[in-house]
Design a binder for these strands. Structure first.
Length: 294
DNA sequence: CTCCAGGGATGAT
DNA sequence: ATCATCCATGGA
């Protein structure tokens, strides 16, 4: 299949796909295969462009190649922590994900590591989605709310969902029934959109902010998960007592500005990747771990 | 083996 | 209004 070329300066495909915002892309050959909506797509990074099997407009929109990344990064606060993350995450973009796919995936994300979320996404797709093909590879679309809603908690639990199955099922049914229209919610301002999302089972402030940032293009939305909270406490409030969630939310909303969600994603990815590297190095350098003593 | 993860809902202070 | 506890699962 012939690949078409898309100009894509200031974009790092591999880092973007590995940054914990989307969970179904897989490496193959020199690139990645995945689904954009219901279409199987292959994407490969070249020097200053992408080579892809997908429709150019669709790929450009999905990867948000129109975001003015230089301006966005320049709007971040100028402090040592943020500067290090900005440097580390060059070319990382916030993807425009389909709303239901993003919402459903993040309902499944609670108390799960990124690797687990990838497995859950894969199982949901394989069991309930539709097969699409790129050359000899099969990828699966994310099942729509009707398909998930027509399932059962028992069936969903087979996808390693655990206690999250009940929430995913209930939310799918709210949407399948037409009671909630995710597309229509896009008209609402941030505060109202967040409130409406939080009415759905399994959706709290953190998941709502992820969906706002990754699917509604609300670039101020600032999800606070365990990694970000650690960064905030250790780097921005070194010795603050009685620092609750409300105070952190107030601080991040004010301090990180109009593209706070982008700043958050850079802090998240930097923290996650650099900490993993340090612990591996420590082991290789010969530190005796507790389990090694046995 | 133990630890912990892109949390949310619920019930007790 | 804040805080503690429980909820399933599996990679590291």
């Amino acid at each position: 299949m012939p690949l078409s070329k898309i100009l894509a300066p200031n974009f790092d495909l591999a880092m973007t796909l590995d940054s914990g915002q989307v969970f179904h892309w897989e490496r193959t050959g020199n690139g990645f295969v995945g689904a954009i909506g219901n279409n199987a797509v292959y994407v490969e990074q070249r020097a200053n462009s992408l080579a892809t099997s997908g429709r150019q407009q669709e790929v450009r929109h999905y990867f948000a190649l129109d975001h003015p990344l230089a301006e966005i990064c320049a709007s971040f606060p100028n402090d040592p922590v943020m500067n290090a993350a900005r440097e580390f995450c060059r070319g990382l973009r916030i993807i425009r994900q389909p709303k239901w796919e993003c919402l459903a995936t993040f309902i499944c994300s609670s108390m799960k590591q990124v690797a687990h979320i990838r497995q859950i996404s894969k199982k949901l797709r394989e069991r309930f989605g539709e097969a699409r093909r790129f050359e000899n590879q099969v990828v699966y679309s994310f099942p729509n709310p009707d398909r998930i809603g027509a399932s059962s908690e028992k069936e969903l639990r087979k996808c390693a969902l655990g206690y999250r199955a009940k929430n995913l099922l209930a939310t799918a049914r709210h949407i399948a029934s037409g009671e909630v229209d995710l597309e229509k919610l896009a008209q609402l301002p941030d505060v109202d959109l967040r409130a409406r999302l939080c009415e759905l089972p399994g959706v709290g402030a953190k998941v709502a902010n992820c969906v706002m940032l990754f699917a509604y293009e609300r670039l101020r939305a600032f999800p606070i998960d365990v990694w970000i909270e650690r960064v905030l406490r250790e780097k921005y409030f070194p010795r603050a007592r009685k620092l609750n969630g409300a105070r952190l939310t107030a601080f991040t909303g004010e301090y990180f500005g109009d593209h706070g969600g982008y700043a958050q994603q850079y802090l998240f990815h930097h923290a996650r990747k650099s900490r993993a590297k340090i612990s591996r190095k420590s082991n290789r350098a010969g530190f005796v771990t507790v389990s090694g003593v046995r």
